[in-house]
Write a protein that binds this DNA or RNA. Structure first.
Length: 757
DNA sequence: CGTCAAGCCCTTTTT
DNA sequence: GGGCTTGACG
């Protein structure tokens, strides 16, 4: 036996420790870019190499993409160490499963458990996973029934509360005890009715996937023991972003042997808004007093300059655990802080810079543009289109959420599970069958006494007195159509089934209405069909259900996994966690945008915004550019926001500050004239690269700080550029002002050149 | 029952 | 500014 182990080769000391620590609880604090995926894959490969059967290992990752990549890397590692290991090529979906550990997101792992064992909770295996859109439809129905005024309590908001309850593993009964306000009492009422409705529809929502699994473990100990005996080694990545329900899942599962390895970085916790509890990782050692702790502090990704800059930003957060990140990479270019006139100039600059990087040898696929809110993507997208630059947007209107795609999915859901009323109501009249709301109301009215599931009520349509002959025939026709498709589902794989569906309902003709949108819709349908082909090798029954499952659980970043096209990537800061790029541009670094206006008044939320900035910055290997615009069109109004506080936290020594203007201080805000100036004479920003002060507002101030005095609704003010006007509203440090010439604009009080009259 | 237009609210972030 | 819902009409 040689002294060195290939599975330890090329690892640094703490990484080695992580690989060698195989039994008992282990906490790995892994800073950004510290090679934690490397440590984790080597650890798992090493376990297998030591004789632990792969199926005894569970690894929970943050995205399916991460799981997939780790599988590939482990496969490669094991090839090296054991050439005789019969690894297959991974061409089909199932063939690898026995040779490799179970890896996936919390949601996909739990879905898998529930598909197998939910019957022990008295529920049906054919359950449907509802997405946000389905949830909202169901909630609207529920609230209508409860006669809760939708304008008082919005369905979306209600679902938000419910999701919070579920992520904290609080059931309706317990929620009722907590409810103190009338509003919360209504929410709780809706919560329990919503739960019942989910059961009726044989559906679960995202949160249920975790919570129902926890319930299964708690209520049926024998099942828990079975899974404990199966998964003896448990690894959880991105542990700082787990919620309480996920914590319970992990704790229960690891309860017996406690071979639990959790990895994370408290500085990268950015999902508190959906119930992530940073205490899970901070208190891990309280939970497991004998837990080993390993810190990965060497950064292999970024240049030292980027590291210094991002450390300076995150260092402003109080109460962080000690961490000393360092990089052996050479210094690299400075962090560029690019101040531009407005959001359009920002888009143009981003694209210009991306093109310039390409000429410097950085491929487009190695570049990313990050923003705080999805709404900001539109401008960048337009700039890309205008410049003819290939781009790819993650998030926003998701492919599977497009109307035509959802319609087809609704048919497929219904074929699998006729009790899915949300899907049924969605497509009963798509394409138009002349079964409209009036008809459905008549059926529901009749059904009030019968109390049948809607699907069965439809089958008895001829007994509904209020319906005429023609309507009854049309309903019967629809019922027949579905029955026929259900029959086909037993012998056809999902793509063939869908092709038959499309033919029968004449969807192509319905969608292709000679408009551009119609054509696009049809193209989306064809794309959906091509995704389905992957599932054609499976048995018909599993083909449909596994397709639907994957569709329900793919995340946006998963799309990057098998996409090699050379394009600029656009995504939100939240989505970029775990990814890396040669060049990163973060746009909209302005107060009220990033940090977002809704976070400015809450200390903890502000800290989370800062962590989000840290995550964004640490994605960059070599080039990092931060954009801020002096004015920005938002909600149809021009806002003037101060540069983000995060920008002022950057050390001067590692930043280069640029501005696109040498125009006089007043001209940037002048209206029409300024637009004409750019149209006729494109700016050449890099000619005058001498750093302009980022605090442009100082030139404009009238001396007195307007914000220090009270500005309220009705105040008369004078603006340095726009003249006199009246304040119409003040919220969150931003004032809406109606000027005497009729113009309406919004200003951040802390910075706008305003004088109170 | 389907289409069109006016008015609404909106923007945090996602599996 | 814009996407989506709601309401009036054909």
């Amino acid at each position: 036996m040689p002294n060195h182990d290939p599975l330890l080769d090329g690892l640094n000391e703490p990484q080695r420790k992580a690989v060698e620590h195989t039994t008992g609880p282990l906490l790995i604090l892994a800073g950004a870019g510290s090679g934690k995926t490397r440590a984790l894959t080597h650890r798992i490969a090493s376990l297998i190499h030591q004789g632990v059967p792969p199926w005894q290992i569970l690894a929970v990752t943050f995205t399916n993409k991460a799981a997939k990549e780790m599988k590939t890397r482990i496969t490669n590692l094991l090839h090296i160490t054991d050439p005789n290991s019969p690894m297959d090529s991974g061409s089909s979906l199932t063939s690898q499963s026995a040779k490799l550990p179970v890896m996936g997101t919390f949601h996909s792992v739990c879905a898998r458990i529930l598909r197998r064992d939910i019957t022990h909770l008295g529920r049906d295996r054919t359950f449907i996973i509802y997405d946000t859109d389905d949830q909202e439809r169901l909630m609207k129905e529920v609230m209508r029934e409860l006669k809760i005024d939708e304008t008082e309590l919005k369905p979306k908001a209600t679902l938000g509360y419910i999701s919070r309850f579920k992520s904290e593993a609080v059931n309706p009964a317990e929620a009722r005890k907590q409810a103190t306000s009338e509003r919360m009492e209504q929410v709780v009422l809706a919560y329990s009715a919503y739960e019942k409705a989910l059961r009726r529809n044989n559906a679960v929502d995202f949160d249920d996937l975790i919570l129902e699994t926890v319930r299964l473990f708690v209520e049926v100990p024998a099942i828990l023991e079975r899974y404990q005996a199966t998964w003896r080694y448990i690894n959880v990545d991105e542990y700082q972003d787990t919620n309480h329900a996920q914590y319970l899942f992990v704790t229960l599962l690891a309860g017996k042997e406690k071979n639990l390895c959790v990895i994370g970085d408290p500085d990268q916790s950015i999902y508190a808004f959906r119930g992530a509890d940073i205490r899970n990782i901070l208190e891990f050692q309280k939970e497991y007093p004998n837990a080993a702790q390993i810190k990965l502090e060497q950064n292999y990704r970024s240049t030292q300059l980027i590291l210094t800059a991002s450390d300076a930003v995150i260092a402003c957060n109080p109460g962080r655990p000690q961490k000393a990140m360092w990089s052996s990479r050479k210094e690299g270019p400075k962090v560029l802080v690019n101040e531009v006139r407005d959001e359009r100039a920002e888009g143009e600059e981003v694209i210009r810079l991306a093109k310039q990087r390409v000429t410097e040898g950085v491929a487009l696929r190695e570049q990313v543009v990050l923003y705080r809110t999805n709404a900001q993507s539109r401008l960048i997208e337009e700039a890309c289109m205008h410049a003819g630059l290939p781009y790819r947007i993650l998030g926003g209107v998701k492919f599977y959420a497009r109307r035509e795609v959802k319609d087809i999915l609704a048919y497929l859901h219904l074929i699998m599970n006729v009790h899915d009323t949300v899907s049924l109501l969605r497509i009963i009249n798509v394409p138009s069958r002349k079964i409209g709301d009036t008809t459905l109301e008549k059926i529901q009215e009749w059904n009030r006494d019968q109390n049948l599931p809607l699907w069965e009520a439809l089958q008895n349509a001829d007994r509904v007195p209020a319906l005429n002959e023609g309507t009854i025939t049309r309903i019967k026709g629809f019922v027949e159509l579905l029955r026929d498709l259900q029959l086909s589902a037993q012998s056809l794989a999902v793509s063939a089934l869908t092709e038959k569906l499309l033919r029968t309902i004449g969807l192509e003709k319905w969608l292709r209405d000679d408009t551009e949108e119609g054509e696009e819709r049809w193209q989306n349908v064809l794309e959906l069909l091509s995704v389905m082909k992957k599932y054609d090798t499976l048995e018909p029954e599993v083909s449909l259900s596994s397709f639907l499952e994957e569709v329900a659980l793919v995340s946006e970043v998963d799309k990057l996994a098998d996409n090699n096209e050379d394009a600029l990537t656009l995504m939100t800061l939240h989505l970029c966690k775990g990814l890396e790029f040669d060049a990163v541009s973060i746009v909209g670094c302005e107060e009220n945008i990033f940090p977002h206006a809704s976070c400015l008044w809450d200390k903890e939320q502000l800290e989370e915004e800062r962590r989000l900035m840290y995550v964004g910055m640490t994605r960059a290997k070599t080039h990092l550019t931060l954009f801020c615009a002096r004015s920005r069109m938002l909600w149809g109004q021009t806002q003037v926001n101060a540069p983000s506080r995060f920008l002022s936290d950057l050390p001067e020594s590692v930043t280069e500050r640029r501005s696109d203007t040498v125009l006089s201080a007043f001209s940037w805000a002048s209206e029409k004239g300024e637009e004409r100036a750019t149209a006729h004479k494109p700016l050449e920003p890099y000619r005058q690269a001498e750093p302009t002060s980022i605090q442009f507002n100082q030139d404009l101030n009238f001396g007195e700080e307007a914000s220090q005095e009270t500005v309220e609704e009705g105040s008369r003010v004078e603006h340095a550029v726009f003249g006199q006007g009246t304040v119409t509203a003040v919220r969150g440090g931003v004032a809406d002002i109606e000027f005497d010439n009729g113009k309406k604009k919004s200003f951040a009080l802390s910075i706008a050149p305003l004088k109170i009259l």
